[in-house]
Design a protein around this nucleic acid. Structure first.
Lengths: 260, 260
DNA sequence: CGACTAGTTGAGGCCAGTCAATGTTGGTGG
DNA sequence: CCACCAACATTGACTGGCCTCAACTAGTCG
């Protein structure tokens, strides 16, 4: 249980937990990034001490979201990028006829909101899957800062480019994998991401409902449910509601690449 | 026929057509962008005359590709971005087990190669669908130039962000549309892109095989073929090999959003 | 001419969707 | 405390859309 993702980095200097929805002012955020445990996965990645000091004022505020609350929605003006500090979010796009496609699941250290840079309006929505806190990086503050800190410029581009290749892997999954392969790939992706964050890669909590997972994978919720049951029956994993334990990772890996 | 996409902007100052594969030297490329008919869709978009003059040396060379030739492949070091000058390309990702997923079709004015910025290696491949010429924008030249031309910085980010939202629309298509809806959306997307480039939006040539279209849409080639036949029978379009004429665009549009 | 590639069309099978019944969990208010 | 409800999840029976396999045509190129 100790390895389940949970708040590890409670900021000792932070004031008493503010109410959800509360925007934490900049005055409480000196050295926001320097002291953050996610700095090596997040925007400050690879910066030296000097550069780090310069971007430490990047985070103008933080924002708390209650479960189900939207960080931004279709048409929201693009003003900032967000770094997930605690909790998690899903992003999704919606068609005119109302169909929704989940396009991403974002956890600790992930940057969300990049899509808004295309048109100065967000073309997708981001919704908290649990009580969540994000760092707000005002875009008109990033821009001039990046002019003077090339490493930040580079990181920004890399996050954009990484998002592109991430999306392309998802296309590969949606376009050419069968249901069981998709779910296996999804579970392994989660495992890898938890591992990189220092959590268990074999036991974690799903933050999405079966329906949301299905939307992400291009499947119906019943199919997702059935697959979980089957995987469990085959001894590949143990599942109890949203609590997953991977028992046979090699088998999962093999499932992903099984043009049988 | 006059409205079929074809080379419109043959550069009068260019030397005699070099052999395919030939790399055209920078000496022939003064004012590459200023005089290009695609400048308002391509990297110079929105730049004023002064800025345009500054980025006019961005294109260090051009490259000709024969049909089927690869511009870059999985693992190719990332060194440049490419702007399609004539012809067209497909981009695709390949899984370890060899499965290929076409992730994009790129025409006149499109920027390709953005995915390489994530890891300094390309994670996808780009292959010419016909004899094609691209402008080569050396990345180590873009970087310093962007430092001094903010508008270029902005454009670069916008192209990256636009690619992200493009990919997300494709995810929506792959994840939540049925076969006929996907093909309809694909045909309308092509129509719109040809329109913006000054070509007919109701009559154009497909540059991809049924198999490539299928891979892009997450379908098998037989399904694509059958759908074309059905659409023709229903009077929505006329198709003869790769020559498409859209007869009932509203019907196509309705097909895309038909949760019947 | 034969070999090859691209495309069309048909027959049949299977994977995932649909519809429906039931179980489980967590929150709310009497 | 329990009753109640809504949201989430599981499982079964059935259906159908797309895939698979296969035969055939047309065009191209050596």
């Amino acid at each position: 249980m100790a390895s389940t993702p949970q708040e590890r980095d409670t900021d000792a200097t932070a004031p008493a937990t503010p109410a959800p929805g509360h925007v934490i002012s900049i005055r409480d955020l000196k050295a926001a990034c320097t002291s953050c445990s996610m700095r090596e996965l997040c925007m400050p990645f690879g910066l030296d001490a000097h550069e780090l000091a310069q971007i430490d004022t990047l985070v103008s505020s933080r924002k708390r979201l209650r479960k189900g609350e939207a960080l931004y929605d279709l048409g929201t003006p693009f003003e900032a990028l967000f770094a997930v500090r605690t909790g998690s979010l899903k992003t999704s796009v919606v068609a005119e006829d109302g169909r929704e496609q989940v396009t991403g699941y974002h956890m600790l250290g992930d940057i969300v909101g990049l899509d808004g840079m295309a048109t100065d309006q967000h073309l997708s929505r981001a919704v908290a899957l649990e009580d969540t806190e994000v760092c707000v990086m005002q875009y008109d503050r990033i821009e001039p800062l990046a002019q003077h800190v090339p490493a930040l410029q580079t990181n920004l581009r890399r996050f954009l480019a990484r998002e592109i290749s991430r999306d392309q892997s998802i296309m590969l999954m949606l376009g050419s994998m069968r249901a069981e392969e998709r779910l296996a790939a999804f579970l392994l992706d989660l495992a890898e991401r938890y591992r990189r964050r220092g959590y268990s890669s074999t036991q974690y909590l799903l933050r999405m409902t079966r329906e949301e997972i299905g939307s992400f994978l291009g499947l119906k919720l019943e199919t997702v449910s059935r697959l979980f049951s089957r995987f469990q029956q085959e001894g590949i994993l143990r599942i109890n509601g949203r609590d997953v334990t991977l028992l046979d990772t090699p088998a999962l890996r093999q499932l992903c690449t099984s043009r049988d």
